[in-house]
């Protein structure tokens, strides 16, 4: 069996050496160009779905599939997330035991800031998400952290998104800290890498597979993918965060799924949100 192990190692080394040859424009720290990525993605969708206006991609699958759009427009007349936005506002305004509140932790009292998340935090050297800072605000003020995926944290996030509707996403990748660009690159790489027993990348379904049926489901496009989160998903029967969806997708590839707010997911959110720059925040959303 020793020989077998050597052989396996041989493959690993052979594969590793390919990395150097693979370096092409936009795939390593020297060449990665987020703006070029964003334009290329928009052009990809322009040629894929020439009838869809760019601004409409915030509506996900409903921007490209007329049939399901009709049902969705009806659904939006009495939005299923309405209760959650109200509940979120209530929770947002309840003071902590120390008398402080969420408004004290965020710029502009937490109103109309959703479209600035996630952002690169230079001091901490990491990507920060809105949900992460909601919990950090709690902990800093002596409260317990909330569970990441659903319930109160999703409701508070939904309220904050609601107050930010129609603000244009403006995710920055600061030039003065190369780690920010590295985080973006990691997120981009995560999106396009095949993983799990089913050998699926995010791109398999949400880029090349956009609007093509998987059984009765239509995967949404990657452009505008994150603008409407958190979402009330009919399949869940409740509201959930973006990272809840990430974990579910990751599991669907038959990977051992990462936990919400894992660094890989935050980098992915950073990449995906940058791709949505120029589009408006329209969360919370309703999805099948």
């Amino acid at each position: 069996m020793k020989i077998i192990r050597k052989l396996a190692l041989g493959f690993a080394v052979a594969a590793a050496t390919h990395i150097t040859y693979a370096a092409d424009t936009g795939f390593d720290m020297q060449t990665v160009d987020p703006e070029a990525d964003r334009i290329a993605l928009q052009n990809y969708y322009k040629s894929r779905f020439p009838d869809t206006e760019l601004a409409d991609y915030v509506n996900g699958i409903y921007s490209v599939d007329a049939d399901s759009r009709e049902q969705w427009v009806e659904l939006e007349e009495f939005p299923p997330y309405e209760f959650d936005v109200e509940k979120g506002e209530e929770l947002f305004n309840i003071a902590f035991a120390n008398g402080k509140g969420y408004a004290d932790c965020f710029e502009n009292g937490g109103i109309g800031i959703r479209h600035k998340y996630p952002y690169w935090n230079k001091e901490e050297g990491t990507v920060k998400t809105l949900e992460q800072e909601i919990n950090e605000c709690r902990v800093k003020n002596g409260e317990e952290a909330l569970k990441w995926s659903k319930g109160p944290i999703a409701q508070i996030s939904a309220y904050m998104a609601w107050t930010s509707r129609d603000k244009v996403f403006d995710i920055q990748i600061p030039e003065d800290d190369p780690r920010a660009k590295a985080a973006y690159l990691e997120g981009k790489k995560f999106f396009y890498s095949k993983r799990g027993q089913l050998n699926l990348s995010c791109a398999n379904c949400h880029l090349q597979g956009s609007n093509i049926r998987i059984r009765a489901d239509l995967p949404g496009p990657q452009l505008g993918h994150v603008t409407h989160f958190p979402v009330f998903r009919s399949k869940w029967g409740e509201l959930g965060t973006l990272h809840r969806r990430y974990s579910g997708c990751h599991r669907d590839s038959r990977s051992d799924p990462l936990k919400p707010q894992a660094e890989e997911f935050r980098n992915l959110e950073y990449f995906q949100s940058y791709m949505s720059n120029g589009l408006v925040a329209n969360g919370p959303g309703a999805r099948k």
Binding site: A15, I19, A22, D37, K188, Y192, S193, L207
Partner: peptide, 23 residues
């Protein structure tokens, strides 16, 4: 076997993920 294939998949992704990116 699954673990070994996962390792192979990782190395493949490192070398080839860029092929899926729209240009």
């Amino acid at each position: 076997y699954h673990a070994r294939m996962g390792i192979q998949q990782y190395h493949y992704a490192q070398a080839n993920w860029h092929l899926a990116v729209p240009q």
